[in-house]
Each structure stands twice: as C-alpha cells, then as structure tokens.
Design a binder for these strands. Structure first.
Lengths: 71, 71
DNA sequence: GCTTATAGTGCGTTATAATGCCTTTTTTAC
DNA sequence: GTAAAAAAGGCATTATAACGCACTATAAGC
C-alpha cells in the first residue's frame, strides 16, 4: 500500500492502551473481525468509513492536516 | 456515509487554497478525476490510499488522533 | 448573448474492500 | 507443558471503490 503504517500502528496502539481485544473492538465498532485483523496487520486498504468507525469507538478522529515541515 | 464531511471539505478547501483544478489535482495525485469528483461532492467512501495520495500532493497528512473533549 | 473552463453526474466495467467460515499460529495463564 | 485466549491467515463470496466515457450544469471571460 503506502506509508499509512502510522495509521495502522496508531490503531493497534490505541486498542492495546484501552486493553480491548480485536474481537471486542470489532463488536463495538461494527467492523468485521476479519477486516480489523487485515487492517492491523498492515494489509488491506481500509475505507474512510471503516477507519472512522474504529476511530470513533476508541475516542479518536480521522483528520487531514497540513504537513508540518521536518524541523 | 458518516460525518467524514470534514475530510471532504478539508480536501476541497485545501485544493482551492492552492488554486488548482480538480483535473490538475487528479493528474498530480494519480487519483482519477472521476474519483476525485465523487469524493469532493461528498459521495463515495474513499480508501486510505486514495485519501493519502490526495493529501500527499497537497502537503497534508492523514492521521488519527485522540479526540479532544469539547471544552 | 456566446465560448471556454471547471465542476457535477449517469452508467457500465474492473479491481478490490468487507465479510464469513475455518484452520493455524502465537501468546498468556495456570 | 498444557489449556485457553487472542491473533494471524487461507479461501470464497458479496458489496462497492476506482475508473473511463459521455453528457449536463455551472461559472468566468469576453
């Protein structure tokens, strides 16, 4: 895919911080377990809606922001 | 879809700020014009990769961040 | 008005995201 | 080390994103 690795890692880290399993997050978010697994393992190319469902339930926002120049 | 309206508006605003047409952005980003039109018009549910391609070329980042409580 | 550039949309095709089911692998707790 | 829980992954199906093409609508100039 691309370098969206940050996104996937961020999702996983957040999930682990919350102490919830993939299965539980799948149930809470309405995203299929199979889909969540693919996303966290860096395969797949999730849609904005799928990302948003996961973000929502974990208290996160999916957003676009102007890139800050590397200092 | 969802309330990803922010995302789409952000994309359009950024494009207009840069003074570039949909056609030009499509060429620069490698996202098909048809696809870009659908996104900006709020239809469609773009993939992370598509969003990322558009963001990249406009100097933006797609990111997930912990929601800030409404003050 | 007319012309041109830009944006919006209908329709069909192709590629692939989302999903379910089932099995394997890894991790965690005894 | 065994059992249970959690995660990873193969495979097939369904839903739909991405796309091309052609047409329409809406500015923006002149």
């Amino acid at each position: 895919m691309m370098h969206l690795n940050n996104l996937y890692e961020t999702l996983r880290e957040r999930r682990e911080t919350l102490g919830v399993t993939q299965l539980h997050l799948a149930e809470l978010s309405g995203v299929a377990l199979r889909t969540l697994k693919e996303i966290e393992s860096g395969k797949g190319n999730p849609t904005a809606e799928t990302l948003s469902k996961l973000a929502d339930v974990m208290g996160m926002d999916l957003k676009l922001e102007i890139r800050k120049p590397a200092v």
